[in-house]
Every structure is written in C-alpha cells, then in structure tokens.
Amino acid sequence: MATVKFKYKGEEKEVDISKIKKVWRVGKMISFTYDEGGGKTGRGAVSEKDAPKELLQMLEKQ
C-alpha cells in the first residue's frame, strides 16, 4: 500500500493511505485527516505535486 510523507509542526511523518479518512483541497495543497490509533485523529497536508496518485484519486472520488 502507498504511504504519504509530510511534515506536521516541524516533524517528519508518514502515514499509510488506508488510514486516511477525509481528503480536501486547500489552494495547491491537499489536506487530510487520518486515524492515529487509540481513538485519535491526526492531520496532515502535502503539496499537490508531492501527493501520491492514490491520495489524488481519493480526492476525485469525493
């Protein structure tokens, strides 16, 4: 499965596409929420050019 690499609050993070719950576009950025486990929801964003094609496909399906 594909992963998304991004920075959040200065920390490098990587999340599996299957854990992503919601995806939306903000200008040229793709924002998303994902399941961190333990009932927590994380947030992240990547630029449109750095987003994996699976993430862009999720955006188109909504």
Rank of each mutant, 00 (worst) to 15 (best):
residue 1 M to Y: 12
residue 1 M to F: 08
residue 1 M to T: 15
residue 1 M to R: 06
residue 1 M to I: 12
residue 1 M to W: 13
residue 1 M to H: 10
residue 1 M to A: 08
residue 2 A to Q: 12
residue 2 A to V: 08
residue 2 A to R: 05
residue 2 A to P: 10
residue 3 T to R: 02
residue 3 T to I: 11
residue 3 T to A: 06
residue 3 T to G: 04
residue 3 T to M: 05
residue 3 T to K: 05
residue 4 V to Y: 00
residue 4 V to G: 00
residue 4 V to I: 14
residue 4 V to A: 01
residue 4 V to H: 00
residue 4 V to S: 00
residue 5 K to N: 04
residue 5 K to H: 11
residue 5 K to D: 01
residue 6 F to P: 00
residue 6 F to D: 01
residue 6 F to V: 02
residue 6 F to G: 01
residue 6 F to K: 00
residue 6 F to I: 05
residue 6 F to N: 01
residue 6 F to R: 00
residue 6 F to M: 01
residue 7 K to L: 13
residue 7 K to E: 15
residue 7 K to C: 14
residue 8 Y to S: 09
residue 8 Y to K: 07
residue 8 Y to I: 13
residue 8 Y to W: 06
residue 8 Y to C: 13
residue 8 Y to D: 14
residue 8 Y to H: 08
residue 9 K to C: 05
residue 9 K to S: 05
residue 9 K to V: 02
residue 9 K to E: 15
residue 9 K to Q: 14
residue 9 K to R: 08
residue 9 K to W: 12
residue 10 G to S: 04
residue 10 G to F: 03
residue 10 G to V: 01
residue 10 G to W: 02
residue 10 G to C: 15
residue 10 G to H: 04
residue 10 G to N: 08
residue 11 E to L: 05
residue 11 E to N: 12
residue 11 E to Q: 06
residue 11 E to K: 05
residue 11 E to Y: 13
residue 11 E to I: 07
residue 11 E to M: 04
residue 11 E to T: 07
residue 12 E to L: 09
residue 12 E to A: 07
residue 12 E to V: 06
residue 12 E to F: 11
residue 12 E to Y: 05
residue 12 E to R: 11
residue 12 E to W: 12
residue 12 E to I: 15
residue 13 K to E: 02
residue 13 K to N: 03
residue 13 K to L: 09
residue 13 K to G: 04
residue 13 K to C: 11
residue 14 E to M: 04
residue 14 E to K: 04
residue 14 E to Y: 04
residue 14 E to D: 04
residue 14 E to Q: 08
residue 15 V to A: 05
residue 15 V to M: 03
residue 15 V to C: 07
residue 15 V to W: 00
residue 15 V to Y: 01
residue 15 V to Q: 01
residue 16 D to Y: 12
residue 16 D to V: 08
residue 16 D to I: 05
residue 16 D to F: 06
residue 16 D to S: 08
residue 16 D to K: 07
residue 16 D to H: 06
residue 17 I to P: 02
residue 17 I to K: 02
residue 17 I to D: 01
residue 17 I to T: 09
residue 17 I to A: 03
residue 17 I to C: 06
residue 17 I to S: 14
residue 17 I to W: 01
residue 17 I to M: 10
residue 18 S to T: 07
residue 18 S to E: 10
residue 18 S to K: 02
residue 18 S to H: 10
residue 18 S to A: 07
residue 18 S to G: 07
residue 18 S to P: 05
residue 18 S to Y: 10
residue 18 S to I: 15
residue 19 K to G: 04
residue 19 K to H: 15
residue 19 K to M: 13
residue 19 K to C: 13
residue 19 K to N: 13
residue 19 K to V: 10
residue 19 K to E: 13
residue 20 I to A: 02
residue 20 I to D: 00
residue 20 I to V: 09
residue 20 I to F: 04
residue 20 I to K: 00
residue 21 K to Y: 15
residue 21 K to Q: 08
residue 21 K to D: 07
residue 21 K to V: 14
residue 21 K to L: 14
residue 21 K to M: 14
residue 22 K to S: 08
residue 22 K to D: 14
residue 22 K to M: 09
residue 22 K to Y: 09
residue 22 K to N: 15
residue 22 K to V: 08
residue 22 K to T: 13
residue 23 V to A: 11
residue 23 V to K: 01
residue 23 V to Q: 02
residue 23 V to N: 01
residue 24 W to R: 03
residue 24 W to C: 14
residue 24 W to E: 15
residue 24 W to N: 07
residue 25 R to G: 12
residue 25 R to L: 14
residue 25 R to E: 06
residue 25 R to W: 07
residue 25 R to N: 15
residue 25 R to K: 05
residue 26 V to I: 04
residue 26 V to W: 04
residue 26 V to Q: 10
residue 26 V to H: 11
residue 26 V to A: 12
residue 26 V to K: 14
residue 27 G to L: 03
residue 27 G to Q: 15
residue 27 G to H: 04
residue 27 G to Y: 09
residue 27 G to V: 02
residue 27 G to W: 02
residue 27 G to E: 14
residue 28 K to P: 15
residue 28 K to F: 04
residue 28 K to I: 07
residue 28 K to A: 14
residue 28 K to R: 07
residue 29 M to Y: 06
residue 29 M to F: 03
residue 29 M to L: 07
residue 30 I to W: 01
residue 30 I to F: 05
residue 30 I to Y: 02
residue 31 S to C: 04
residue 31 S to L: 08
residue 31 S to V: 04
residue 31 S to P: 03
residue 31 S to F: 07
residue 31 S to Q: 09
residue 32 F to T: 00
residue 32 F to K: 00
residue 32 F to V: 06
residue 32 F to A: 03
residue 32 F to L: 12
residue 33 T to N: 15
residue 33 T to H: 09
residue 33 T to V: 08
residue 33 T to F: 08
residue 33 T to A: 14
residue 33 T to G: 15
residue 33 T to E: 11
residue 33 T to I: 12
residue 34 Y to H: 09
residue 34 Y to N: 01
residue 34 Y to A: 01
residue 34 Y to W: 12
residue 34 Y to P: 00
residue 34 Y to D: 00
residue 34 Y to R: 00
residue 34 Y to V: 02
residue 35 D to A: 06
residue 35 D to Q: 04
residue 35 D to K: 04
residue 35 D to H: 05
residue 36 E to F: 05
residue 36 E to R: 06
residue 36 E to A: 05
residue 36 E to W: 06
residue 36 E to G: 08
residue 36 E to S: 02
residue 36 E to D: 05
residue 37 G to Y: 11
residue 37 G to L: 13
residue 37 G to F: 05
residue 37 G to Q: 11
residue 37 G to S: 09
residue 37 G to R: 07
residue 37 G to V: 11
residue 37 G to K: 14
residue 37 G to C: 15
residue 37 G to A: 13
residue 38 G to Y: 10
residue 38 G to V: 11
residue 38 G to D: 09
residue 38 G to C: 15
residue 38 G to N: 09
residue 38 G to A: 08
residue 39 G to N: 08
residue 39 G to S: 10
residue 39 G to W: 10
residue 40 K to G: 09
residue 40 K to F: 14
residue 40 K to N: 15
residue 40 K to L: 13
residue 40 K to A: 09
residue 40 K to V: 14
residue 40 K to W: 13
residue 40 K to E: 13
residue 41 T to C: 15
residue 41 T to R: 06
residue 41 T to D: 14
residue 41 T to E: 11
residue 41 T to I: 10
residue 41 T to M: 11
residue 41 T to G: 11
residue 42 G to D: 14
residue 42 G to M: 06
residue 42 G to E: 15
residue 42 G to Y: 08
residue 42 G to K: 06
residue 42 G to F: 12
residue 42 G to H: 11
residue 43 R to I: 03
residue 43 R to Q: 08
residue 43 R to P: 08
residue 43 R to E: 15
residue 43 R to H: 07
residue 43 R to N: 06
residue 43 R to D: 15
residue 43 R to W: 03
residue 43 R to C: 14
residue 43 R to L: 03
residue 44 G to T: 02
residue 44 G to R: 01
residue 44 G to E: 01
residue 44 G to F: 04
residue 44 G to N: 02
residue 45 A to Q: 12
residue 45 A to R: 08
residue 45 A to L: 09
residue 45 A to K: 06
residue 45 A to P: 01
residue 45 A to T: 05
residue 45 A to H: 13
residue 45 A to S: 10
residue 45 A to E: 13
residue 45 A to W: 04
residue 46 V to G: 01
residue 46 V to H: 03
residue 46 V to M: 09
residue 46 V to T: 13
residue 46 V to D: 00
residue 46 V to F: 02
residue 46 V to C: 06
residue 46 V to S: 11
residue 47 S to M: 08
residue 47 S to Y: 12
residue 47 S to I: 14
residue 47 S to R: 06
residue 47 S to K: 06
residue 47 S to H: 06
residue 48 E to D: 05
residue 48 E to M: 04
residue 48 E to V: 11
residue 48 E to Q: 05
residue 48 E to G: 05
residue 48 E to K: 08
residue 48 E to I: 04
residue 49 K to N: 12
residue 49 K to W: 05
residue 49 K to E: 15
residue 49 K to H: 11
residue 49 K to S: 12
residue 50 D to L: 15
residue 50 D to I: 07
residue 50 D to P: 04
residue 50 D to W: 12
residue 50 D to C: 13
residue 50 D to H: 03
residue 50 D to T: 08
residue 50 D to R: 08
residue 50 D to G: 06
residue 51 A to V: 05
residue 51 A to Q: 03
residue 51 A to W: 01
residue 51 A to E: 03
residue 51 A to D: 02
residue 51 A to T: 12
residue 51 A to F: 01
residue 52 P to W: 01
residue 52 P to R: 04
residue 52 P to H: 04
residue 52 P to Q: 08
residue 52 P to I: 14
residue 52 P to A: 07
residue 53 K to V: 10
residue 53 K to M: 12
residue 53 K to C: 15
residue 53 K to F: 13
residue 53 K to N: 11
residue 54 E to C: 08
residue 54 E to A: 07
residue 54 E to T: 12
residue 54 E to R: 05
residue 54 E to Y: 12
residue 54 E to Q: 14
residue 55 L to W: 02
residue 55 L to A: 02
residue 55 L to K: 00
residue 55 L to C: 03
residue 55 L to D: 00
residue 55 L to Y: 00
residue 56 L to C: 04
residue 56 L to I: 09
residue 57 Q to G: 06
residue 57 Q to I: 14
residue 57 Q to D: 09
residue 57 Q to E: 14
residue 57 Q to A: 09
residue 57 Q to Y: 07
residue 57 Q to H: 13
residue 58 M to N: 03
residue 58 M to R: 05
residue 58 M to C: 06
residue 58 M to F: 06
residue 58 M to I: 10
residue 58 M to L: 10
residue 58 M to V: 08
residue 58 M to W: 06
residue 58 M to K: 03
residue 59 L to W: 04
residue 59 L to Y: 11
residue 59 L to N: 02
residue 59 L to K: 01
residue 59 L to D: 02
residue 59 L to C: 06
residue 60 E to N: 04
residue 60 E to A: 09
residue 60 E to S: 04
residue 60 E to L: 05
residue 61 K to V: 06
residue 61 K to W: 13
residue 61 K to T: 13
residue 61 K to G: 12
residue 61 K to N: 12
residue 61 K to H: 14
residue 61 K to F: 04
residue 61 K to Y: 06
residue 62 Q to V: 03
residue 62 Q to G: 15
residue 62 Q to C: 12
residue 62 Q to R: 00
residue 62 Q to I: 06
residue 62 Q to T: 04
residue 62 Q to W: 02
residue 62 Q to L: 07
